[in-house]
Design a protein around this nucleic acid. Structure first.
Lengths: 190, 190
DNA sequence: CTGATGTGTCAGTCATAACAGAAGTATCAG
DNA sequence: CTGATACTTCTGTTATGACTGACACATCAG
């Protein structure tokens, strides 16, 4: 027996619990299931690495669910397995660099959903070009869509190559550009 | 009777149907229900404004669902009501400027989900500061999270004020910056 | 005023996905 | 080798929300 808690629910400080609940709900609206987001939030706020058992106890969810969720989180590289000396159990800790977190999430989503959609769109455009039933408007719109997605894609890929520090620089640069452009620096308002 | 189609399903060109299906699926993974995304895709590819009845016929879904979905889409300003001379029925057409589309979606999501989460986070930080049960690590992480969200928020708000043309300029500017920074322009690689 | 047409609302049904608990597998101490 | 511990996988249950079809309301022509 490593700990006193066997199947009881360990209480959490109220603000921490509130954060975890909100974070889980947020993830839920964003296509990430609640448990995964909650576990990530818990690990993010935790002092040190936690075991699956502790996580289950603190969140009040089944160990099996914790196991599955942890695997997902490791796949997304949002948490790490941390071996602890003298303890056979797996411990987990969260990535704490939030820039890294959003980057990883964006990477995952892009690879899983955006890239396939992009490929499908390419096929649609190709098929539409060869299909006399597709009218000119649809053809134009499909092409517009593809051009747009490609622009966003290449922009994103370039951003990925940047280190975090450059991101920060870019954002503040963006602010300056905004400030410079706001008074009417050469672009029409619409 | 305005048209020959009463309750039959109107066929769609294969590439168009494929696009609509993929788009709907995409939206589904992103927290938008499938019907809404499909209707938007259909309108986006349509030559002219469509009635609710036609949409239902072409997508093979119930008129009631179309009615609800159209209301949502109008609320999000992704489609417009278009009155047609000599026709009592409402016609709808999609916003075709894709920059506008992503902007509207982002605005909606921010207002509905990010802003409330931001407010909740603020409360959490405030409550945590007054709570002795919250350890230093959790306190630091919550503060980090808040700072991060605030940075992203103000950046986003500034971006919103920009016209589309400036967006394009910014993105290409970003590309130049990326190119300039890539060889090692002064930032550590990590 | 009245019938017809279009639109919005509602309650019931159904599909999907997350979850819990149990069973199975692997690893380690003694 | 054997028992115990940690972890994973599997299956049945449950809850959420999307969809349908029926109903109610509004609007317009005659």
């Amino acid at each position: 027996m490593t700990d006193t808690s066997e199947s009881t629910i360990e209480p959490l400080p109220a603000p921490v619990e509130k954060f975890i609940l909100h974070w889980g709900d947020m993830g839920n609206h964003w296509g990430v299931n609640r448990s995964i987001a909650q576990i990530h939030a818990l690990l993010y706020l935790s002092d040190g690495p936690l075991t699956a058992e502790r996580i289950a106890a603190r969140l009040g969810i089944a160990r099996s669910g914790v196991s599955n969720s942890l695997r997902e989180l490791v796949n997304w590289k949002l948490i790490r397995r941390v071996p602890m000396r003298g303890d056979r159990r797996d411990h987990f800790e969260a990535e704490t660099d939030l820039w890294e977190v959003v980057k990883r999430i964006a990477e995952g989503r892009k690879a899983r959903e955006v890239d396939p959609a992009r490929a499908a769109l390419k096929e649609c455009v190709a098929a539409a070009e060869a299909d006399p039933d597709v009218d000119g408007t649809a053809m134009t719109r499909l092409a517009d869509m593809m051009a747009f997605i490609e622009t966003m894609n290449s922009w994103y890929e370039q951003m990925l190559t940047l280190p975090k520090t450059s991101w920060v620089a870019l954002i503040s640069l963006g602010s300056q550009v905004v400030r410079a452009l706001r008074p009417g620096g050469g672009s029409r308002p619409q």
